[in-house]
Amino acid sequence: MIVVDTPSAGLIGKTARAWLAQTRPTRLIGGGFWSPGQAVHAALGVSFVVLIHLHKVKAAKLPP
């Protein structure tokens, strides 16, 4: 997992700052289903205070 405090992005490297400043399709996770047509174009470093990247995820299991 990688966590970036975007207001402190000045403390990270030039490449990472450029990546955070680039506008890209972004998913905003909430209740319900998502389709690619619902993507919002946003620069992550401008739009969010904290960015959390999970390298690996898996489906949740219902409790017994």
Rank of each mutant, 00 (worst) to 15 (best):
I52S: 13
V3G: 09
L51Q: 06
T23A: 13
L44G: 02
G31C: 03
D5N: 14
A39H: 03
G32P: 01
L54V: 09
K14Y: 08
A42K: 04
V49M: 11
L62D: 08
Q22D: 11
P25L: 03
A59I: 11
I29M: 00
T23Y: 02
P7M: 07
A18D: 12
V49T: 15
R17N: 05
R27E: 00
L44C: 01
W19Y: 10
K58Q: 14
T6Y: 02
Q22M: 10
D5S: 10
G37P: 03
F33V: 00
S35H: 08
P7C: 03
H53L: 14
T26H: 04
H41Y: 09
R24C: 07
A21T: 08
G37L: 01
P64I: 00
V49N: 13
I29Y: 05
R17E: 00
L28W: 04
A60G: 12
W19G: 00
P64Y: 07
L20N: 02
K14G: 09
R24F: 00
V40G: 00
L54M: 12
M1F: 07
P64A: 12
A60R: 13
G32W: 03
P64G: 13
G10D: 10
V4Y: 03
W19D: 06
P25V: 01
L62Q: 13
I29V: 13
A60F: 11
V46E: 15
R17S: 00
S8L: 14
A16K: 00
P64D: 09
M1R: 11
S35I: 01
A42T: 02
I52M: 14
R24I: 01
K56Q: 15
T15H: 14
P36V: 00
W19F: 10
A60I: 09
T23K: 14
L20W: 06
A9F: 03
P63H: 09
H41C: 07
A60W: 12
K58S: 13
V4L: 10
K14A: 15
F48M: 05
P63V: 05
S8R: 15
P7G: 07
I52V: 15
P7N: 05
M1C: 09
A9W: 04
T6M: 07
M1W: 06
L44R: 05
A18V: 04
S8W: 07
P36K: 04
K61C: 08
V3M: 13
A18L: 07
V46S: 14
V3W: 11
W19L: 09
V46C: 08
A21P: 01
L54D: 09
A42V: 07
W34M: 04
F48G: 06
F33E: 02
L62C: 12
L54E: 12
V4N: 01
S35C: 03
A18E: 11
V50N: 12
G13D: 11
A39N: 04
V49Y: 07
L44E: 01
G31D: 10
L11M: 13
Q22H: 13
P7W: 06
G45N: 06
L20R: 00
L44I: 08
T26N: 05
A21Q: 06
I29L: 09
G37V: 02
G10A: 12
V46T: 15
G37T: 06
I12W: 04
W19V: 08
H53R: 15
T6C: 11
Q22C: 08
G30W: 01
D5H: 15
P25G: 04
P36S: 03
V4E: 02
G30P: 06
F48I: 01
S47H: 08
K58H: 15
P64E: 06
